[in-house]
Write a protein that binds this DNA or RNA. Sequence first.
DNA 1: AATTGTATATTATTGCATAAAAGAACAATC
DNA 2: GATTGTTCTTTTATGCAATAATATACAATT
Lengths: 302, 302
Amino acid sequence: MSASDSSRQRSDKNGSERAEHLAGLIMALARREGMKTGDRLIEQRLADALDLSRAPIRLGLKALEAAGLARGEPHRGFVLAKNPTSSAAQPALAAVRRNEQVYATVAGDVLASRLPADVTEAELMRRYDVTRAELQRLLDRIAAEGWIARLPGYGWRFAETVSSPEAQTQAKAFRAVIEPAAIAQPGFTLPQEVIVRLREHQQRVFEGELEKMTIGEIFHSGCEFHEEIIRGAGNPFFLEALRRVNSIRRLFAYRSFADRDGMRRHVREHLRLLDVLETRRYAEAADLMARHLQRPLVAGLS
Amino acid sequence: MSASDSSRQRSDKNGSERAEHLAGLIMALARREGMKTGDRLIEQRLADALDLSRAPIRLGLKALEAAGLARGEPHRGFVLAKNPTSSAAQPALAAVRRNEQVYATVAGDVLASRLPADVTEAELMRRYDVTRAELQRLLDRIAAEGWIARLPGYGWRFAETVSSPEAQTQAKAFRAVIEPAAIAQPGFTLPQEVIVRLREHQQRVFEGELEKMTIGEIFHSGCEFHEEIIRGAGNPFFLEALRRVNSIRRLFAYRSFADRDGMRRHVREHLRLLDVLETRRYAEAADLMARHLQRPLVAGLS
DNA sequence: AATTGTATATTATTGCATAAAAGAACAATC
DNA sequence: GATTGTTCTTTTATGCAATAATATACAATT
């Protein structure tokens, strides 16, 4: 109860919660894109990347400036004042996560089977002390991720997918089917520029960035890699299916510990895969992918 | 504008819309289960099957009685008064469909690319003349089916999956990957009772019922068959993925014409597949399924 | 030409009172 | 013993006004 009381109060204060959240989104984006101190933060570009208009972006930028992470001059826009991987940037990134507190709690409770399969909104409102509006946003999001669905009458039902202890293994088995198959599809092709971009990113991760990344970011990066590749099949059903598995795998990821060495090897395999893809040896690539997905992964990461 | 005006008026009249809808659900269930005139309609059983409590079921039953499709005696419950496949039952079934009018219109507009990829709720409310509440239920449903997603700011975005002309082919390619693979999974097994139930149903369809079924029902029946089988892999990710493809394929189904002969052959293949599955020759079954899914299907049905 | 600044229009959310729907418990009946 | 009838409680939906957030258009600036 105290948690949400304080969050409600926070929103009354200055520096609106929303603006801080937006600031976090911008910072996280900058980080993903590998931006450095001094790089320009162009409003329209950020807006496009985040599927928003310039208005909210502007709020985020102002919040960043207030936090000392960006510097703005009239008519000259904003510029990164700190490296997004630096420790100074952490609070802004954490603001996004803080916003996800309830989400994470629910996820934890479901994973640990502390919640019944069927729940009513009223129950959840009481349990997590959120307003109906907040809860509904949360449920919509979880529904979009596919681990809860509305019942015909009152209430919602959690998907068996999540609570089961084998879920992790099953997700792996499923990926081991669709990912190689996608690469082996007749029309599969990956534009050179995508390969270059992916390689750059994996390279950056491999050469040091890894140490500075959070579990969440490492996981996200892995997902993006695999999703970009499966996109090459030109069949959105493959991509969609992978996305859904990944959004559920993300729940487990929080529980897993960081095995940096395993991850290093993992990223090396990604780079190797890119080499094979670049030369269009797709059968071989499919094979490589299959083996890649069969490795025992301590950290539940791929 | 007139469409929704009249529907709003209808709800003012007696015989509430909701009750009629429930009546339709019960009738559709009875039909799926192959019930006949004189069969008892047990409240709790219906409630369980429809994931509701007895209260709404009761409303539906009363509506059925009012429509002359069920007969009830005090303390003795209700009994089917008409065969659910008879023409007398059609209006009740149509009531469910009528409720889906807007859904169907939207689906049609998206399939025909008459709508932009990004839309706001306000636009949709104007275009289809529905209240915000109605629209939100609709959007939630479509989101659950996976062909629209909420944007971070205002508005929603339709999935590329649907509007593309290749969607049908792509759906098929995807199924051709996951369904055989599911059968080929190490732990695959199908309980004898499921096989029996499926065979009974397919048999019934094969021997005549087919002629009386609507496109929607035929499609539904096919989906159920394949979903039951993929469930045998014991991996919910396969089932989930198939369900999603199917919910999108259903959109195309309405456009396709009925090729009863092709369907007959199709059902025969289903029966053949069950034979192989029964003897646990899973490798062979996977193969059969792969071939089954590769046949050119005029009616877009499987 | 690209980008930012600003004003304005559009769109969506929230809170609240009221209404409707669904669920649960238990008695009555077959 | 299973099922229906009945009543009561809980849960959710809806409409509306106020408020907040987002989008858009265009002028100003580099």
